[in-house]
């Protein structure tokens, strides 16, 4: 397959992406391509720019330079450099689904309506259609019994599973996970990881920032290591976790106590 062809079919393709906050360069000339159906995990110590990279993909963070395409569509700016009007930006954003570290469910809506809100008010789906979809998705994440509950009555793990259903409801090209288990009590991490694992088995395209090394090793097709805004290593999980090329990654993995096999 030719170069042009792969970037056309890629779910996400990022070129020459740079971003600074004040004087600090958080992303430096990042290149990343996520093929459809692929799971890419971004790893790195805190402050390495991994969350910023993820948040650039759906333009919650505005990069300084570079380009990002979602399923072939440029996000944020037009190819000729004109800024994208908010309606157009929203349309491209709808091709991505994001799951946040802090869940960010809408507290004034019950579980069902958290999931139906965007399909109804962004895609213009009928209430019935959206509720059928939401019912199926809530079943997929194991939250069928909680349609009428409000977010503040749920555990962290339950909130995150609803948040995953909410993101899936827009049937996005790619799911973005921003440390989805970092705010959870240890005993609740498993239920959320199980849901994400199911999604990867179903062929969803995902980009994930995580500190769960065993999990990253088990589900990823590609692992990317970010250090001070630079991708210093990228490999398939076996190579990455067993024979890292750089000392930096070797040290990082030692500190993270990764199990020898996933």
């Amino acid at each position: 397959m030719s170069e042009a062809n792969t970037s056309e079919t890629a779910a996400v393709s990022i070129h020459h992406l740079s971003k600074s906050f004040d004087d600090v360069e958080v992303l430096r000339d990042v290149e990343l391509e996520v093929k459809t159906g692929e799971v890419v995990t971004i790893i790195g110590s805190s402050g390495s720019g991994k969350s910023t990279l993820l948040r650039c993909i759906n333009w919650l963070e505005k990069p300084d330079r570079g380009s990002i395409h979602i399923a072939g569509q440029r996000i944020g700016v037009h190819e000729d450099g004109r800024p994208m009007p908010v309606r157009e930006l929203a349309k491209v954003r709808a091709q991505t689904g994001m799951v946040f570290q802090g869940f960010n469910l809408w507290p004034h809506l019950n579980v069902l309506h958290n999931v139906t809100e965007a399909p109804i008010h962004v895609q213009g789906k009928s209430k019935r259609e959206a509720e059928e979809l939401a019912t199926a998705l809530l079943e997929k994440v194991g939250m069928s019994q909680k349609h009428d509950s409000y977010p503040n009555t749920l555990s962290g793990g339950q909130k995150q599973r609803v948040a995953i259903a909410r993101a899936l409801a827009m049937q996005p090209e790619v799911m973005l996970f921003d440390e989805p288990t970092s705010a959870l009590d240890p005993e609740l991490v498993g239920e959320v990881l199980a849901v994400i694992k199911d999604l990867s088995a179903e062929g969803y395209t995902m980009v994930m920032v995580t500190h769960e090394m065993a999990f990253a090793r088990a589900v990823s097709d590609q692992v990317v290591f970010l250090e001070k805004g630079l991708i210093i290593e990228r490999a398939d999980p076996e190579t990455f976790f067993t024979t890292p090329k750089t000392d930096r990654v070797r040290k990082f993995l030692e500190n993270h106590d990764t199990p020898s096999s996933a």
Binding site: N58, A90, R93, A94, G97, M98, F100, W106, A118, V122
Partner: peptide, 8 residues
């Protein structure tokens, strides 16, 4: 942000 991320 959660709202914008869904395409609103």
């Amino acid at each position: 942000e959660a709202a914008m991320a869904t395409g609103m």
